[in-house]
């Protein structure tokens, strides 16, 4: 946290030095900074409010309850939805995934859940929509979902195969 502010100070000093040496770039840089700042101001508070609401209303226990008892296509679908809910950074999801695995949840479901948590988060999709447009966002989202499911099944097969081999040895 403090580190980020120090970094900001350093970047700010670099920017001021650069703009003093090259005053002709001043207008282009300040215009860009202003445009992006305005766009962020319009969208970030709303995204943060949604994050806060989900963090309070959807508990980790709730997610684990639903994820632990379903399997098959429904399980994968649920893993995507639950992972996509705006509920905090990825490192929170690791211990949840570990507990679910110990309880016997399918490896593929857990991989889908973790990947959805990492890169299909609803607030992320909103900001992506804002900055990169609907075509980019929808295409990347659908490709990600398809490939994450393939990856999850693949990892499950690899782990099962390697454990099977270890067991017969």
């Amino acid at each position: 946290m403090i580190r980020d502010w120090i970094l900001l100070g350093i970047i700010l000093i670099i920017a001021i030095i650069l703009l003093t040496i090259f005053p002709d770039k001043n207008e282009a840089v300040t215009n860009t900074v202003w445009d992006y700042l305005v766009e962020m101001v319009f969208i970030l508070p709303a995204v943060m409010i949604l994050l806060g609401l989900f963090a309070v209303w959807v508990s980790n226990e709730m997610i684990m309850k639903y994820l632990g008892k379903t399997s098959g296509v429904r399980g994968i679908f649920l893993a995507i939805i639950l992972g996509a809910l705006p509920t905090g950074p990825l490192y929170i999801a690791f211990p949840m995934a570990a507990v679910l695995l110990k309880k016997g949840a399918k490896i593929s479901n857990i991989i889908v859940f973790l990947s959805a948590w990492a890169c299909i988060k609803i607030p992320q999709e909103m900001v992506e929509l804002q900055f990169l447009g609907v075509q980019f966002m929808l295409l990347r989202l659908s490709l990600t979902i398809i490939l994450v499911i393939i990856m999850a099944v693949l990892i499950e097969k690899i782990i099962e195969w390697s454990e099977g081999k270890a067991a017969t040895m």
Binding site: K25, V29, Y36
Partner: peptide
């Protein structure tokens, strides 16, 4: 918590596009 990072990224974008 996110605010300093927001400013950092925006200034980097500004410098990137400007320079």
């Amino acid at each position: 918590r996110m605010l300093p990072m927001v400013f950092i990224i925006i200034i980097i974008i500004g410098l990137l596009l400007g320079f």
